[in-house]
Computed example of a mutant assay.
Amino acid sequence: MIRNIRRNLALFLSLASLALLPAAPVNAAPVDAGAPRMELPAPDKTGGMPLMQAFAQRHSTKKGYSGAPLPAQQLSDLLWATWGVNREDGRRTAPSALNRQEVQVFVALENGVWRYETAHALVKVLDGDWRSKLGGGSLVLLFAAPAANKWSGMHVGSLYQNAGLFCASAGLGNYVHASNASALDGKLPLPDGWSVLIAQTVGIVQ
């Protein structure tokens, strides 16, 4: 009997340890192999505004965007701060439950809608300038996640807060909104059950 108890305890501990291991990140829906790809400059991980000052400066800006594109380096830094890889094991600048990384970031630019890749690059998924339909600005970030996942709101919130703090530090305007989030429903390559939950307008303010 004691032997059986020990065996069952060992099995329970083994299963429990497996449950605590971080899950593999979710795979993105495939994009056309011939889709245009934009390599981003390496992110500048030094300098910037002190954190407490960025908190003091963080606010939503809904008007006054010029629509001018961000410089390539600033776009690179924004995307890395939002959802970039910051460790050699593939973990990112924002947390996710069990490291599932069940969020995809799309960015609507003047020359199309692009998906941000873990290799710090953009892959085009949609032609055309969709910014006016999504909230205007220099660009619009779109945060997609599994609609039925109870953690999706927490994950997306972590990302748009990262983006908002970067904008405060960089002197850019931004605001988060759901009213335009469904503008590209059915047009983006998303896994089954995923949808865009939140949009975030970012840009240069006149």
Rank of each mutant, 00 (worst) to 15 (best):
A145E: 11
K124E: 14
G128C: 02
E117G: 09
A170Q: 11
G171R: 09
G84K: 03
T93N: 14
Q161I: 05
T82K: 00
L141T: 07
H120G: 06
G90I: 10
Q101L: 08
G173L: 14
P71V: 07
A168Q: 06
M154H: 13
D127M: 09
A170R: 04
S152H: 01
G112W: 05
V103S: 05
A97E: 11
Q161W: 11
L141Y: 06
R87V: 09
G137R: 05
E102F: 12
N162A: 02
G171E: 13
K150H: 10
P146N: 07
W151V: 15
A72N: 13
S169A: 15
A108Q: 08
L172C: 05
L134Y: 03
Y160V: 12
S169I: 11
V156Q: 02
L142A: 12
L109K: 04
A163Y: 10
L75Y: 01
W114A: 02
S76M: 06
T93R: 12
T118K: 14
C167Q: 03
A170I: 05
L122W: 02
A72W: 04
S138F: 11
A121F: 01
G153Y: 13
F166P: 09
Q104V: 15
G171L: 10
T118L: 13
W80F: 11
L126K: 09
A144M: 08
E110M: 03
L109Y: 06
A145Y: 09
V156I: 15
L172I: 05
A168M: 12
A72P: 01
L75F: 01
R100C: 05
A145D: 12
A81W: 04
V123I: 14
N99F: 14
H120V: 07
G173N: 02
L78F: 10
S158N: 15
V140D: 09
E117C: 13
A144G: 02
G128T: 10
P95I: 11
W83C: 06
L172W: 10
H120W: 14
L159N: 13
G164H: 09
V125I: 13
L109P: 01
W114K: 05
Q73V: 13
N149T: 00
N162E: 06
G84L: 08
G173T: 00
L159A: 15
A121W: 01
